[in-house]
């Protein structure tokens, strides 16, 4: 079973992701800040990270660079309410950029796609 780390300061959003992605057959681990995400990356060795960008304290871009600094093979999907970060060169380092939507179809297919690629 693949482990996904969901990083978002919005607790309700995390609960939605947890529910939906568990249904898809993933082991879902939650983190509510960049710092917590770093701990969870160490503790749970997730197969993929879904990372929010706009967070208090350490934001998603900074967290991304830290994660990659630690393990540059860990796939990361940036998941943001803002489309503007799509042009930030740091976000190019992520494997995908998905804009938040109540319809999680896009996010789910990106996760599957990336994990399938990783296996093969």
């Amino acid at each position: 079973m693949k482990t996904l780390l969901i990083v978002d300061d919005e607790i309700n959003l995390c609960r939605l992701y947890e529910k939906q992605l568990s249904k898809e057959g993933y082991n879902v681990v939650l983190a509510h800040s960049g710092a917590e995400a770093m701990t969870k990356v160490n503790e749970c060795s997730p197969d993929l990270v879904v990372l929010d960008i706009r967070m208090p304290g350490m934001d998603g871009i900074e967290t991304l660079s830290k994660i990659l600094g630690k393990n540059n093979r860990l796939p990361v999907i940036l998941n943001s309410a803002f489309s503007s970060y799509q042009n930030n060169y740091m976000s190019w380092a992520a494997d995908a950029y998905v804009i938040k939507s109540s319809d999680l179809t896009e996010l789910k297919s990106k996760i599957k796609e990336i994990l399938d690629k990783k296996i093969s």
């Binding site: 939605l16 529910k19 939906q20 706009r54 309410a81 803002f82 938040k100 109540s102 319809d103």
Partner: peptide, 21 residues
């Protein structure tokens, strides 16, 4: 737009997501 994105979109995602669920 920034405000909309941060303050409106997130709740919308949650509402819509759970409704869908």
């Amino acid at each position: 737009a920034n405000i909309l994105a941060h303050e409106v979109r997130n709740p919308l995602v949650v509402i819509g997501g759970f409704a869908r669920s």
